[in-house]
């Protein structure tokens, strides 16, 4: 037996021991109906050939190991760049679980986001009740300053109208009328995660600059010479944002970061869990309208120039 209490070995070494390697060989030949060894070898060599390469590139319908994700992931990323903002993904709850896991695995930090947990009945009847209940519950439990709503495939395919639902939620009084609830439609079958980032950020900016979905007057721009900076969907946002701030300070630039998630994904391990930390203040998000045009952004992480 390879295992022993004095020097515990785990999967890294344990399964290289003779008792296991023999077991694997036996399982394979007796029960797995494996391809004959020569056939395996032949195909393996063939996968390294030019012919394989050509066939691989000729794929038109099959996608393998793509280097992209879907829109709502980008929307969550953008939403977390604002102070005390809770990303709210309207649709199936699996999506939200996946975004949170995906980001937590990357940053090794907690990632807050909630779902309206739509299921089969909502697919038939629409998700308004889910959205209204979801806003009520998430506001009560997590006390955000802003809730940024996006959508999953399901909500998009059935055509839920976020604008209407959010207005109805406020009319019902489940959330305060003044609570900032920007939204963006983020169908996963259009573009990629960077498209979702763009849509979400546009939704948030639109909300603050253009009258909060028709509930307040639009802001009037009075240029103040400041610079707006948008970091885009950047996996190194924590370090990069801080470095760029440092450079701006050195140069004496007056700036606003629109969507600064460098703190929320780097909270201290000091005995206190902070669900929210840092982020562009809602006031700054609104005042960003007065900055120089166009804004500066990291071109490869954003797709469109619209501000």
């Amino acid at each position: 037996m390879s295992q022993n209490a004095e020097k515990v070995i785990d999967h890294f070494e344990l399964f290289r021991g003779p008792e296991y390697t023999e077991m694997f060989a036996n399982k394979k030949c007796m029960f797995e109906d494996p391809a004959p060894a020569e056939e395996l070898e032949r195909v393996k060599e063939w996968t390294k050939s030019w012919e394989y390469r050509e066939k691989n590139f000729a794929r038109g319908s099959l996608t393998i190991n793509p280097a992209k994700a879907c829109q709502p992931l980008g929307a969550v990323f953008a939403a977390l760049g604002f102070e005390a903002t809770l990303p709210f993904v309207h649709g199936s709850q699996g999506c939200t679980a996946y975004y949170r896991s995906h980001f937590s695995r990357h940053f090794k930090e907690p990632t807050a986001a909630v779902s309206s947990s739509m299921s089969e009945d909502a697919a038939v009847l629409g998700g308004q009740n889910n959205l209204i209940d979801g806003l009520a519950n998430s506001f009560a439990l997590y006390k955000p300053k802003m809730i940024a709503v996006s959508t999953t495939c399901m909500a998009e395919v059935i055509g839920d109208d976020l604008n209407a639902f959010i207005k109805n939620a406020k009319e019902k009084g489940v959330i305060p009328a003044e609570l900032d609830v920007p939204f963006a439609h983020t169908p996963a079958f259009v573009g990629s995660h960077v498209t979702g980032y763009d849509n979400a950020l546009k939704g948030i900016i639109d909300h603050f600059w253009n009258g909060k979905a028709g509930t307040t007057p639009k802001l009037e721009r009075k240029p103040n010479g400041k610079l707006n900076f948008i970091g885009g969907f950047d996996g190194y946002t924590v370090g990069n944002m801080r470095e760029i701030k440092r450079l701006f300070e050195l140069m004496g630039v007056e700036y606003t970061f629109i969507g600064d998630n460098s703190d929320v994904w780097d909270t201290p391990s000091d005995g206190e869990f902070r669900m929210y930390d840092g982020g562009t203040t809602l006031e700054d998000a609104a005042n960003a309208i007065h900055a120089m045009r166009p804004s500066r952004c990291r071109s490869f992480a954003r797709r469109r120039r619209w501000i």
Partner: peptide, 16 residues
């Protein structure tokens, strides 16, 4: 039982 919306459940979905 059906998940309550907006509570930050840990659950996933049928695809998972």
């Amino acid at each position: 039982i059906k998940t309550i919306p907006g509570v930050m459940t840990i659950r996933g979905c049928a695809y998972a």
